[in-house]
Amino acid sequence: MSIEVNGIRKSIVSAKKTKELIFDNLSFQVRDSEVVGIYGPNGCGKTTLLNMIAGISKPDSGEIKVAGENPGVHTISYIFQEYKRSLYPWMTVRDNIAFPLIIMKLSKQEIAQRMEKIIDIVKLPFSLDKYPYELSGGQQQYVAILRGLISSPSAILMDEPFSAMDYSNTIWLAEKMNEIFQTIQIPVVMVAHNLDQLMMIAYRVWFMSEKPCTILEEKVLKSFAVSW
């Protein structure tokens, strides 16, 4: 399972109604168990890149493969910046996490088993019967991550996951993320415009240029001793 981006090209219509080229022949690979951070200026196309990997939008040309398939074939966990909007406040934490299983129409017994399995691994510091709005920002984002993980995704994409959080929540969530990413074997891409936040999580950081966006430089932060 890996993410492969081969020579993608993408233009968008800007606010001034002009066509802007944001990616021109961009290629990279994110391997299993690898957490890659993407650092770049505002508006350089970081979120558009994640959207293309997730299958929300398509490149004009080039190819994206997630675990060998086109985006949208395998389940992907996408963690949004706006955690309050990505969670469902009418559902309890339990139902939010189980949401991907509920829509897959798994039996109640199977859902309970999968929930038990994930709760055993992560040791939640809050009740599953609470509603998202009863949790702190970091805890809400954590619920969003667990919801993404329960359906055994092929990749995790994170778009500025800490940007709406205070410092203590950021530290708490970064710790939890590190625990999770050490136990799962899937590629993770995290986008941020705060380098400190990327350094807490990422193994490699790519520094992106202005539009059309290319990888200017790569910094290896952690030499991870995994099987690949």
């Binding site: 929300i56 389940t75 992907i76 949004f80 706006e82 949401f99 829509i103 969003a144 359906s151």
Partner: peptide, 10 residues
């Protein structure tokens, strides 16, 4: 965001 998150989750 809410619609896209549900769509991505399947």
């Amino acid at each position: 965001v809410r619609i896209n998150s549900a769509r991505i989750l399947g």
